[in-house]
Design a binder for these strands. Structure first.
Lengths: 190, 190
DNA sequence: TCAATTCTGGAACGAACAGTCAAGAAAGGC
DNA sequence: GCCTTTCTTGACTGTTCGTTCCAGAATTGA
């Protein structure tokens, strides 16, 4: 048995995320993985189990990082509504790289319970953190009150997915910014 | 050479669409295809070329059918704005089945020009048909005028993608209806 | 320095894959 | 009847896949 060190493990996992987000699970071969991760084939299997376990880990790692980035933006501003805008701004700015979360849901839907679990956990964490922010913005009169905080979060998440798909389909930055503007417009008070 | 008849060809193509939309290109084997299409392996290759050509044809057929369904709903109502709602209603109602367009863009992005071509053609047709409808609704005062017709269409398409991803991720009908309501809210005049 | 551990590269495995071949069944025209 | 064409069937090819095995290089710890 051979296991690579914690530090290299995380770096290798990041490399795996990079391959999977671009090519999906079925579109990625173990050879692409060992090349990108710069470790031997044997180390890959000893450290991560098999390809599916590595994929699940990669999705989990990506989801954690992405969720934390969302939350950081949400909480980074004085006014809560500015946090919402900042979160969407970041999504638009980084939309040129494929989203592993969207890809993973597209590729497998609900067919792999262990994968669904990962998605649900990330969704739960983001939802929990965003709820406060949304309510705060609603109380400040910056966000419409006719929709519940959860409905607002669902809409933001769906809008993020829509923006990322548009980007993957070839839309430019201006088009994505327009999508963001319209999405936020849905949440403005009348 | 053996080529199956036109009628059976279309039925077989529909079956292929059903498999591809659920499992993607890489997740679909030729055996799954011949089983679903109920034709011999040889007939498949003689009639459609290879797996990729069949996939491209399936995406094209799906895109055509979906675009026409959108346009039918758009034009089916007295008031243009009701057409927009009807289009979104249909998307929500049928969101339990995966969308081959979204899947295809997710899986391949812009990496296959011949596939991108198919998407662009469908986008162009829908955009052309929807523009009139949007402008009509704007003139009737049922749709906000601050966004251009093209921006509105882009937003509707992105919202449709967002709704479909949400559904693929497990969202129920009420959640999808809520997404639709909020998306349409973005386009309402203030 | 020596020995144990950790990692690499290459070879090899069976399985599954896309695609081909060839033989025969079914159908159609004469 | 018979011959030609159209389709089905199942076996087959070469390739690629995920995974394992193994020998040796590199690294580590004492």
């Amino acid at each position: 048995m051979a296991r690579i060190k914690e530090f290299d493990r995380d770096k290798a996992l990041d490399a795996a995320v990079g391959v999977f987000r671009e090519h999906g699970f079925d579109g990625t071969s173990t050879e692409m993985l060992v090349n990108a991760m710069k470790i031997g084939r044997q180390s890959l299997y000893d450290t991560f189990g098999d390809k599916w376990a590595l994929y699940r880990l990669a999705v989990e790692r990506y989801a954690c990082a992405e969720t934390e980035a969302h939350i950081r933006e949400l909480r980074g501003k004085e006014r809560a509504i500015d946090g919402v805008s900042a979160m969407m701004d970041r999504v638009v700015a980084e939309a040129d790289r494929a989203c592993l979360g969207v890809n993973s849901i597209c590729e497998f839907g609900q067919s792999r319970p262990d994968l669904t679990e990962v998605h649900l956990a990330a969704d739960h964490r983001l939802r929990h953190a965003a709820r406060d922010c949304i309510r705060q913005a609603q109380d400040a009169g910056d966000l419409d009150r006719s929709a519940s905080a959860d409905a607002v979060i669902d809409f933001l998440i769906a809008s993020i997915a829509g923006i990322r798909i548009a980007a993957r389909g070839g839309a430019g930055q201006e088009a994505l910014q327009s999508l963001e503007r319209l999405a936020l417009r849905a949440l403005m008070p009348r």
